[in-house]
Design a protein around this nucleic acid. Sequence first.
RNA 1: GUGGACAUAGCUCAGCUGGUAGAGCCCUGGAUUGUGGUUCCAGUUGUCGCGGGUUCGACUCCCGUUGUCCACCCCA
Length: 422
Amino acid sequence: MRFKRPRGTQDIFGDRMDRWNIMEKRLIELAARFGYTEIRTPVFEVSDLFIRAVGEGSDIVSKEMYTFRDKKKRSLTLRPENTAPVMRAFLENGLHRRGGITRFFYIGPMFRYDRPQAGRFRQFHQFGVEALGSSNPGIDAEIIDLSLEVYKAFGFRGLEVRLNSVGCPKCRPSFIETLQSSLSGLGKELCDACSERAVTNPLRVFDCKDCDDVKKKLPVITDNLCDECMMHFKELQSLLTDMRISFVIDPLLVRGLDYYTKTAFEILHPGAGAQNALCGGGRYDGLAEDCGGPFIPAIGFSSGLERLLDNIPDDALDLSTGRKTDLFFAVPDQEFCAKAMNLASELRGAGFSIEVELSGRAMKKQLKTASESGACYTLILGNDEMEKDGVTIKDMETGGQVLVPFDEVVRYIKRGRKEKFE
RNA sequence: GUGGACAUAGCUCAGCUGGUAGAGCCCUGGAUUGUGGUUCCAGUUGUCGCGGGUUCGACUCCCGUUGUCCACCCCA
C-alpha cells in the first residue's frame, strides 16, 4: 500500500470505536448534568487568535502549530487547544451581552505538531468545559468538581488534585522580577536548561526535575499574590474543603499557556507514566480583553480523551451490553437476495436491527458470522424455503429452527421479542 | 527539537556468528454435496519498512531515510 496515515494520527474503528462512543456519550451526559451545553467551533482559526491568546513564547505557538496559508494567503492554524476559539465564538456572537454565566462544553480533535509518545498524538481529542462571565471562586470550585466527576464516572481512583494560583497582571510581573533576581544569584547551581529558562521563562524552572534542591531556595508565588488573588485563592480552598474535595497545593504548578490567571489546577493519575496529567485547567480572566473584547472573567479545563480512554480501569467500561444486531439473515442462494432484503426492511420497519449476508459464502461461514454478530435469530432463505414460501428461523441459543411463512415472519420475531430482546 | 530501542504474513511473533523465510491466530476449502459457537485434515499467506553500500551471496553487517515505541523539552 502506498499510503500511510500521517505521523501521530490514528484510525479508530471496531471495539475501540465502541469505547469512544460510550465514553463520549457519558461525558456529554455529565456535562449536561452540570448545566453545560455543547459548542462546536471550527477546527481551524485565524493564526493570530492562538498567537495572541496562547502566547508567542509558549511552546505551543513557537513549535507545535499546524499553520498553513489558504488560497487568499490568509494564515490559518489547526486548533491546538479550544479555549481561545470558544472565547472568540463567545465574543463574536455577542453572547457576553446576555449577562450571567455562560457554560459551554466541547469535544473534538485538536492538533499539535509534537513528537508522538505514549498518550500523545498530533491529532488528539479533548473534552473541555468553559464557564464564562463570573469571577466568583464558586465557579472555580464547580469546574474542579466537574472535572473530578468526569474521572469518577469512569471508575478512576486515587486521583490527585493539584492546585495553585498563578496571580494576575497586578502581582505576577513583580513576582517574576524577584524570581529572576533570585535565580541569577544561584548561578551554576542551575542545570543548563534552567539557566536558559531563568531568562526566557522563569516560571518554568519550577517544572524542572533536576533542580529540586534549587527550587527550595526560590520565592514562591503563593507568598507573593496581591490581596485580590490571595482572597480568591483562600475562598476557593475553603469552598473545596466544604465540598469535601481534597487537593494538594502545589506552588510549583505553572501552566504553559500565557492566558492563565489566578487558579491553575491539574488532575493527576499516579501510575500513568510520563503522561500522568489527565486534565488541566485554570482561570483566564484576561483572555477576553486580549481578544479585543470587554473584561470577561472565565475558567475552564480540558481533558485529553486518549489519555482518559487508555487509563480507564479495566472493569469500569462495560462493552458487553451492546449487542450489535438482533437478527442475521443468511442467504445460501444469492439469487434470493432481493427477497431477503425485502424481508429485512420489513423487520427493520418493525424496529429490529438485521444484517443481511450478501457474500454468497458457504452456509457454514454465514452461520459462523451470524454467531459472531451476536444475533439471537438467524433467518435462512434458500431453495427449500422459497419452494414453501417461507424462511427458516434458527434460534442461535438453542440451535432449534422452524419454517415460518413469509407473511408471519415479523409476527414470529415479535413474539420472541419478550424473551430475546428485553 | 534531543536521546535510546525497534521495524519479518491481515494480527502476535520466531529466524543462532551473512547461504534469498517459519509458528500460532485469522482467512479459504474439506470431513458435514445448505447449518455456528468444539474437533480434525488441507491450502493461501510476504517487494523480511524504504533507498543505498559491503559481499560470490544480505532478513541478517554498515550508512541514510521513513515509521513505531520509550524518555526529555512541553503538554492533554
